[in-house]
Amino acid sequence: MDNTTYSLRDRVLFVKLTKELDHHNAIGIRYTADELLNQKQCDSVVFDFANTVFMDSSGIGVIMGRYRKVREIGGFIGVTGVGESINRILEISGMYKLVKKIDMGEMENGN
């Protein structure tokens, strides 16, 4: 089941991802994120993996797809709350060349 939640702050879309990010759950996440990007409510996306214990290549597809979109409008992609298994997937697929790791504590202090 997809329990992903979305919030907007300072033109950044925060996507708190569901427990398991596979092809099944990726479809709805892609759709909702793109709706908000297309409505020009944000130009960057931060994916929060704090609740996520599983991700496969479909999750990489979601990140790469949003990266292509925000790059056109000068935004960025961030990841946060990354645990060990998710980190391995992000590293192996070379995602850290495209996305930056974000410390949510720093973000909340306005740094």
Binding site: A26, D56, S57, S58, I60, G61, S93
Partner: peptide, 9 residues
Amino acid sequence: ERSGMGFVF
């Protein structure tokens, strides 16, 4: 939006 990483993984 297939990443092309399936077989690699």
